[in-house]
Amino acid sequence: MNFFRLVADLMHLASIFILLLKIQKTRSCAGISFKTQLLYAIVFVTRYLDLFTTWISLYNTIMKIFFIASSVYILYLMKYKFRATYDPILDTFRIEFLLAGSLVLALIFNYDFVPMEILWSFSIFLESVAILPQLFMLSRTGEAETITTHYIFALGGYRALYLCNWLWRYIFDGHVDVYAWVAGIVQTALYSDFFYIYYTKVLHGKKFELP
């Protein structure tokens, strides 16, 4: 564990709490893409299958269980409790392509051609593009509640800090994980426009609006 990874994980954790806070405080999931949330639930379930096979640490286990449980809980909130506040008309990104593309990539790029490894690769590739329906929704509405932008920022920042973590681990441990690196770079790059507007608008006390 190094500083970057710890802060990254805490940001990831924070992003989920911010999202839950947004939904509970405003009693609405307006502005949140159900499709992105669905993709994250798939990402966590397919990646953390090793909960049943490998013990890493208490920290690792608790975080994995939390990520799976919270993602399913958010789906429940959006699909049932606050269903009336969700606008499917704005959430029209075609996730079939993301799922199919990630699966094809996982079948080609994996550390071993066995179901667990293929699903792990699939989750890495799917995570890198899972934010797209949310960003697409943002571009359709052209604006967002400030708390929603904090959520997206924390979620994007987590993977950006993982890039620092991977550089650290490569230098000090010789740790190499090419698939995660490439996917992490793509994931962070997808946020770059968002980061720019977040920095120039939200952090200067203005509303998040697309130019």
Binding site: R5, D9, H12
Partner: peptide, 10 residues
């Protein structure tokens, strides 16, 4: 040949 690949991250 399989690469050594430990998955200890989240």
């Amino acid at each position: 040949k399989k690469k050594e690949h430990k998955k200890d991250e989240l």
